[in-house]
Design a binder for these strands. Structure first.
Lengths: 183, 183
DNA sequence: GGTTCTGTACCGGCTGGACGGTATAGCCAA
DNA sequence: TTGGCTATACCGTCCAGCCGGTACAGAACC
């Protein structure tokens, strides 16, 4: 694993364990096992580090979504179903400290949220492309967002069983027997 | 309006307009029209100020929920319907800078999130008390959370018409024609 | 009704420490 | 020996929290 990746990992871990406010270049260096100078060699500034974290997040989301999309059967709501499945992947971004990137960006410099906005725009486009009822798909996906943010903020709701039931219900809402309004 | 409230207002405004990272005691004092000493008279520390902000948030949520609950007709999912309505109140916490309290807390000291956790616990309890299908109610309310957090992070999804349609669909899912599984 | 005491509200300067960023020197593999 | 990478030392700035002080309003006492 490259030093650059190690630094990003360290930053993510700090954010998850101690909060965004505790993320400093010094600490990121210590956790990554190098010195601050080393960090600043790979990232020209703290903003640059956050950018790296955000990119890691968006890359990971893209990757997992593509992978689930390939597995998901064709038909209406294919993208929405993909997003639901991805949200419950135990190894996906939804259960990774990688989400801390979001908090770091919105806290330290809202401009760094730009890639996130772009990602959302892409999702919205994909959802529209194959959802017979975009309101239905939107609600379900917004619920996935809610779940994601709750996890991010340490607001856990129920156990694994609850999560599974939630996923199943979300998929039910997106099943062929619930096509919703025609476009 | 008391000086204390003025300070909290100022802090909220700063968070909304400039981001959590820009919230300092000095700036809060300036915006509130007093000195830093004055701020520290009312709040013993910055953490204490955040606590005040969080309490303002939870109080406001409580108040608006109680008010909508009173207006909401009896029957299954009354609490869930209440939460949906409250989420779309243009004057409610969902559309107020008061939400910045959440970001401030999670950023500066996750321990300060405790009242938020307590609030969620109460909501969950209420939801369970009158939802024939708690999974259904949970999904809808999680979607409301998603909407809230999206707004908080500046990720807007659609216009007012979209919001209205989303609310109507959420209420449809909670209507008597959709009772869901029996308890 | 003047004087002294006490508590509340607020002010503004100060300091010590943390933090982002720079400069520079050292290490090591190709 | 050059270039990629890392360590160390340092600087300037910012900020939380502290503290000595002011203003003022009521109470208490004479």
């Amino acid at each position: 694993m490259s030093t650059r990746d190690k630094i990003i990992d360290a930053a993510m871990t700090i954010v998850r364990d101690a909060g965004v406010g505790k993320l400093t270049l010094d600490k990121a260096a210590t956790v990554a096992g190098i010195s601050k100078g080393g960090v600043l060699y790979h990232f020209r500034s703290k903003d640059d580090l956050i950018r790296g974290m955000v990119q890691r997040l968006t890359d990971q989301c893209d990757q997992i979504n593509q992978s689930y999309y390939a597995q998901e059967p064709e038909g209406p709501y294919r993208w929405a179903r993909t997003l639901v499945r991805a949200c419950f992947d135990p190894n996906g971004p939804a259960n990774d400290p990688v989400g801390g990137a979001l908090l770091a960006a919105v806290t330290l410099n809202p401009l760094l949220m730009e890639p996130i906005h772009a990602m959302y725009a892409k999702w919205r486009e994909r959802l529209s492309s194959d959802s017979p009822d975009i309101v239905r798909a939107g609600l379900v996906c917004t619920a996935m967002d809610g779940l994601y943010f709750q996890r991010l903020m340490g607001i856990h709701r129920g156990d694994q069983g609850d999560a599974r039931r939630l996923m199943e219900f979300a998929l039910t809402l997106l099943s062929p027997s619930n096509p919703g309004a025609a476009p």
